[in-house]
Computed example of a mutant assay.
Amino acid sequence: MGLALDVMSAAEREQIARELLTECKPARKAGKLSANCPFHSEGTPGNAFFYNPEEDYGYCFSCGQGGDLVSIFNAVTGRVPDDPEGFKEFVARYCKEGAEKLRGQISRREAQGWTPKKAELPPASWGDKALEFVVQANAELMNDEERLAQLLRWGITEGAVRELGIGWNDETTFRKFTHWGLPYEENDKGNERCIMLPRGFVFPGFRRGVPVRIHIRCEDPDMPDLPRYFQIMGSSNVLYLFGERKASVWVVVETVRDAMLLWQELSPLGVGSMAVGGVSVRPDTDAERILRSAEFIMVALDNDDAGARNSWHFEPWNERSRFSWCQRYAQASRWLVPAGIGKDAGDLPGAGVSVLDWFMAGVPAHIRRRLLRRQEEIRGGQNRG
């Protein structure tokens, strides 16, 4: 949100962080604070979460979640990081003296509106190490019948595993920052920081054949505090893109696994899929160009409060400046997985529901007719073959 960075000094931000965070103390690296993570319950509290008052950003090296002071406030008060009610409460509690400046900030944001940012991709050295890891994990998975069967229960075939580079990491390991091409950085104990690679399914995203973002679906029973989908340190926050960039129809979902399933089922019809990899992640300039030229965008974020808030925003005090999918893109429409089945597209196969049928039910009639004709052409070609 950037509010605290704009209307407060670094000293004021530090004071509020010390008030909000548990076991907050100066970190070994000057200018930072270490504390218990506000975003998840730690089995071994401390030494993983750090907040930088100068930059107004905190990050947990255990769960992989981060955010600014407003996000931390929301987490501490039991809200999701981008909760608008928490934003307003933060303003009322901490920004009284900066209210005039805040009103000016909101007015400027309303005039300017939200704008996409150019993606910051990982350094080439990180990409090289990430590619080695992905190739190794994919080879491991292709020889693991049990894990392939688990993916098939989720609807993902062996062909998709091979094509998309999905893998399996059999053991939680830690790699030093510099071994993965990242700048040297120390933890609170004075040792070099490490990248965690949890045990679980590896889902990579590529740009020009090189991994730029990787999530691991954690399957380590000894690490229950980790989020279900853990983003590897050093990954970019670009959207996962699957399909031809010139596709006219796109489906936007939260997890990369769901986007891969949709690509598997819909790409023969020329439909692309995107995963944000975190409900508050926004399109970069590359994704913005694709979405702007699309004929139709199906917004299938999870069927929950966070998915709804990021699909639409109705706050009159923030409606122009705050991003939401269905207000940013006039050709976008929200389409839910029924609550009786689950909350996302990945729940469809387990319920015996066709991904294609679910998708077709949510597209406009003229697009559905065109896609059905394409489907008949594909079937006709297969029959002739």
Rank of each mutant, 00 (worst) to 15 (best):
V202W: 08
V252G: 04
N74V: 07
Y184N: 11
P227H: 02
E12P: 01
V135K: 08
S107M: 08
V135N: 04
R373W: 14
H40K: 14
Q65G: 11
G346M: 08
D302H: 05
H366L: 08
I166Q: 02
I214E: 03
F61C: 11
K118H: 09
I367W: 07
R320G: 09
L269Y: 01
G167K: 09
L152I: 03
P338R: 07
R28Q: 13
T255G: 10
L3G: 00
R374I: 10
E185Q: 15
A130V: 04
N303R: 11
E315Y: 13
R207K: 15
V256E: 01
D305Y: 10
D220L: 05
F61T: 14
F61K: 12
W250S: 01
I297P: 00
A332I: 06
P53Q: 09
E295A: 10
F90A: 02
C37H: 12
G342F: 01
A139R: 13
L141W: 03
W168E: 06
M298G: 08
G181A: 11
R282Q: 13
D128N: 12
A130H: 04
P84G: 06
P38D: 09
D304T: 06
N187L: 07
G104V: 02
E295P: 05
T285H: 02
Q112N: 11
L266N: 00
R79C: 08
A48V: 15
G43E: 15
F201M: 09
V279T: 03
R108F: 11
P116T: 05
D56K: 13
S267R: 04
A339S: 14
T255N: 08
A351G: 00
V256K: 00
F206A: 09
K129M: 11
I341G: 02
S236H: 05
E140S: 14
P81F: 09
A10I: 07
P116L: 00
F323D: 01
N36I: 13
R245G: 09
G340L: 06
A365F: 08
V253D: 01
W312A: 11
H179Y: 10
I195P: 01
G270H: 03
G205H: 14
Q112E: 10
G352H: 04
D128C: 07
S236N: 05
S293M: 14
M8F: 03
E265I: 02
V251A: 03
E140C: 10
F230K: 00
V276R: 04
G58F: 12
A35N: 12
